[in-house]
């Protein structure tokens, strides 16, 4: 009898784990992935979805089984067995969740680090290095603009800091009820965000009135834009296309209408867009 119970339990656990992994990896609940962060995010999602399915299905099965198997039969006025507890069982179901959440915590830390989330936010060596590379690579007017930004020594309060490399800086201003994107590299101002495929983009975000939030579901990224506290968000677009930019923080009556688009261009198309929108043309 003991052996039969043990075998049944083992088989049930195996079936549960297999079902969880199958559901977690095969059922897709997410929109397309269009940034390097999205790929990392999706692998985390699959793991959490698998574990969540196992836990939920397991508890559902035990609950329904109990309600059927241990239902009170008509005319049975007796009590159940006086079982008050079981210390080894308590230890098992304390230890297993502890191990699972520890694993999830470490894994999501790893994902967050891959996203660049653990890099210090304030002016650090990495940022100087990134700026220097930009200065070397773009025209003088742009590097001057970045230089000004740096000397102001403004504290960055939240967000994800850039990876090193050839970063495209964009100043984002949020207000009721619009985002304004300004490109220091070409002095372009736009109501839509245009970015080239494959190049890291650094959004330096400020709000004029109330708190807003910059969210692109296909990038799996969001950052509040806070009046008085500049924030930053870095990502690398990996899939060309047009995606929504959504304000995710309640900002007033027209909050639901505060949306625009981000267009991820092939590099050549992006250059064409920059040329078509540079101030020499738009200002005349």
């Amino acid at each position: 009898m003991q052996i039969r119970t043990a075998v049944t339990t083992a088989l049930a656990a195996t079936a549960l784990i297999a079902t969880g992994m199958l559901v977690g990896t095969q059922v897709n609940l997410l929109p397309v992935d269009a940034s390097s962060n999205a790929a990392a995010y999706d692998s985390l999602f699959k793991v959490l979805f698998s574990i969540g399915t196992m836990l939920f299905a397991g508890i559902l099965i035990v609950l329904v089984y109990s309600l059927v198997r241990f239902r009170r039969r008509a005319g049975d006025g007796a009590d159940g067995p006086p079982t008050e507890g079981n210390l080894p069982l308590e230890i098992v179901w304390t230890a297993i969740p502890a191990v699972v959440v520890l694993f999830i915590g470490i894994y999501s830390y790893d994902i967050y680090e891959r996203m660049g989330g653990m890099a210090p936010l304030d002016h650090d060596a990495m940022h100087h290095q990134a700026s220097a590379m930009i200065e070397a690579s773009v025209q003088p007017a742009a590097s001057q603009a970045i230089g000004e930004d740096q000397t102001s020594g403004e504290r960055v309060w939240g967000g994800i800091r850039p990876i090193d490399g050839d970063v495209l800086p964009v100043d984002v201003t949020a207000m009721q009820f619009a985002f304004i994107f300004h490109y220091p590299e070409g002095e372009i101002t736009s109501g839509e965000l245009h970015v080239p495929l494959g190049r890291p983009v650094e959004l330096r975000m400020k709000a004029l009135d109330v708190i807003h939030a910059f969210w692109v579901p296909q990038f799996r990224l969001k950052q509040d834009v806070i009046p008085g506290q500049p924030t930053v968000l870095t990502f690398t677009p990996t899939r060309a296309g047009t995606y929504p930019v959504i304000c995710a923080e309640l900002c007033g009556p027209y909050h639901g209408g505060m949306r625009t688009s981000v267009v991820v261009h092939e590099p050549d198309d992006y250059l064409a867009w920059v040329q078509a929108n540079s101030p020499a043309i738009t200002n005349t």
């Binding site: 508890i59 035990v62 609950l63 109990s66 309600l67 241990f70 239902r71 009170r72 039969r73 049975d76 007796a78 009590d79 159940g80 067995p81 079982t83 079981n86 069982l89």
Partner: peptide, 9 residues
């Protein structure tokens, strides 16, 4: 769940 298990529900 262990409270339910084996009871007379």
């Amino acid at each position: 769940l262990a409270t339910l298990w084996g009871g007379k529900i």
